[in-house]
Write a protein that binds this DNA or RNA. Structure first.
Length: 253
DNA sequence: AAAACTCTCAACCGCGCACAG
DNA sequence: ACTGTGCGCGGTTGAGAGTTT
């Protein structure tokens, strides 16, 4: 059956917005308010997809947007929030008035990542890099990131009703401490932050065997897979599983 | 001067979730 | 319980600006 398209693509403009389109959108939203994005383009006389209108408004035309460079304080706030929330750009943006998720995401990818690498910190894990060269993450870093992000932790964020601020619960102190390179918690630096977060083990599907080994239970088989071995680090310092066989997809039931 | 290369960021795309019927 | 619709999110792309050769 498939999903119905969000708009009739053959009758919509794409690419950069013109001044006239911006003005139409602004004046329509000033008159009628936000919302009902699907029907907005037609009502506003725009040959645009509703999603495109929403994005243009939220990321560029909204009057409360703070344009211009990020301050040092904003930088540090983003870094701290990212260490707690990961790539949850909308949650991060919700705590930076006047900034959009898209803006923060772009800023993260173009500036902050580099900044953290310069400090010797892995931007994904917020842990010190184990580097061969000063600024580049190694395969081991990638491995650690993969294991921690995808297998080791599952971040549970309780979703709430629309339009309400997200409710996250119970910051895991252990994680926070390990991520805080200065030893100062986010609570101390940003007491006004309400970051409720809980972290738990992932459900049944995958289980950590050792730091680099995961157990994968899928509908075909149960098997152990060593990420180190798969990346060619078997029998090295990076790999402690001492079992090349684990790198294969042999069943381990 | 211009070609090649790099960087930035606005915009697009596809997916998942919530909700109404 | 199921299905369709709309919205919002995160990842990715690509045009254009800036820089280097």
């Amino acid at each position: 059956m498939g999903r119905s398209p969000c708009c009739e693509k053959e009758h919509t403009n794409k690419g950069a917005w013109t001044k006239e389109e911006d003005e139409r959108l602004i004046s329509y939203i000033k008159l009628h308010g936000e919302g009902c994005w699907r029907s907005l383009p037609k009502a506003a006389g725009l040959l645009r997809c509703g999603k495109s209108c929403r994005l243009r408004w939220i990321n560029y035309l909204r009057p409360d947007l703070k344009r211009g460079n990020f301050t040092e304080e904003e930088d540090e706030l983003i870094i701290n929030l990212h260490s707690l929330l990961g790539n949850k750009w909308s949650l991060i943006a919700a705590r930076l008035p006047g900034r959009t998720d898209n803006e923060i995401k772009n800023y993260w990818n173009t500036h902050i990542k580099r900044k953290l690498h310069g400090r010797g910190i892995d931007p994904q894990t917020h842990r010190p890099l184990i580097t061969c060269t000063p600024n580049k993450p190694t395969a081991i870093d990638t491995l650690t990131t993969t294991a921690n992000d995808n297998v080791g932790f599952q971040i549970n964020m309780q979703k709430t009703k629309k339009q309400q601020p997200p409710e996250l619960s119970n910051i895991n102190n252990e994680k926070e401490d390990s991520n805080s390179s200065s030893g100062v918690t986010t609570d101390e630096v940003y007491p006004e932050l309400n970051l409720e977060l809980s972290i738990g083990l992932p459900a049944q599907q995958k289980r950590i065997i050792s730091s680099s080994c995961i157990q994968v239970n899928d509908k075909f088989s149960k098997r152990r897979v060593c990420l180190c071995c798969n990346l060619g680090f078997q029998n090295s310092q990076a790999c402690s599983c001492k079992s090349m066989a684990m790198a294969t997809t042999n069943n381990y039931t």
